[in-house]
Computed example of a mutant assay.
Amino acid sequence: MKSLPKTILKHALSLPEGGVLSPKEFLHLGSRSAVDQAFCRFAKEGKLLRIARGMYTAPVTSRFGSRAPAPEKIVHALAEHHGEVVVSHGASAANSLGLTRQVPIREVYLTSGRTQRLQLDHSEILVRHAPRWMLALGARQAGAAVRALAWIGPSLVQQSLVSLRQSLPAAEWQALASARAMLPGWMAQAIGKEAARG
């Protein structure tokens, strides 16, 4: 039978980039202290990266050395691990939809789960709990539009909607217009006004 540390490392290296693992997954192979000790040793040696309490990921190794996995891959792997929805923050969504040229300095994501801070090398990723209406349309463009509008706010919503109506594919614009009932009043009203322009 393989030793506990070898089993942990083999599993970690078999995961796709950003895949997460927890000591709890290995408690059937040894005592809690033995499992924790193995994870602790791998983190000190740089074979695993501790991203949050009880959550680890393997660094990506290439011929140029090793680096931390891409933040979005870790965030999405964590969401899958916990059965949660995770999407880009409104500022990122607004940038990707061409509504702003501002590039967010900090990595922020929205989730249906609890708010948590992830440590990745020398940077911090914030995964913030969001209300259900912000996540309702998911990662599709219509969902990004909802989050972008929420970030932009009521004062600039109308001009942003004019731009979105021209840039979004017809099916995405229709999905956005159809979702009005679950959105905040100011946003629903603005979308209705733009949709009524024919």
Rank of each mutant, 00 (worst) to 15 (best):
V157L: 02
S62R: 15
H76N: 12
Q166I: 05
A179E: 14
Q166S: 14
A38Q: 02
S33E: 15
A79H: 03
P184V: 00
A52E: 08
S31G: 10
A195K: 09
F64N: 07
R41Q: 13
L13C: 05
E80F: 02
R128A: 09
S167R: 15
Q119A: 14
E45G: 02
L21N: 03
K10H: 09
V108C: 02
A188C: 04
G138I: 00
R32Y: 09
A148H: 03
V146M: 09
V127M: 12
R147Q: 00
Q141D: 09
D121N: 13
R32T: 12
M1Y: 02
G65Y: 07
S123R: 14
K6N: 14
E17D: 15
T57C: 15
L183M: 15
K73P: 05
A52Y: 15
V157T: 12
A38I: 00
K193A: 03
V20W: 10
A175V: 01
R101Y: 06
G192K: 13
Q102I: 05
W151I: 00
P131M: 07
S66Y: 12
H82G: 00
A177Y: 04
Y56E: 10
G18R: 09
S160L: 11
D36C: 09
V108G: 01
Q174R: 14
S14P: 09
S62A: 03
A52M: 10
R41N: 07
H81Y: 15
L176V: 00
R63K: 14
S167H: 14
G143C: 03
A179F: 08
W186D: 12
L27E: 11
R128F: 05
L110M: 11
S123A: 06
G198K: 13
G98F: 00
H82E: 15
I8H: 10
V127R: 06
G65S: 04
L49N: 07
A130W: 04
A196M: 04
M134Y: 00
Y56V: 02
L126G: 02
G30L: 13
E45F: 03
V103M: 13
L176C: 07
P23G: 01
K47I: 05
P184Q: 06
S123T: 11
T61L: 10
S160V: 08
A188M: 11
I191L: 11
I125W: 02
A68M: 08
A79E: 03
G46F: 10
A34C: 05
A142F: 06
A93H: 01
A179V: 00
I74L: 07
E84A: 05
L48N: 06
R41C: 02
F64C: 01
V162T: 13
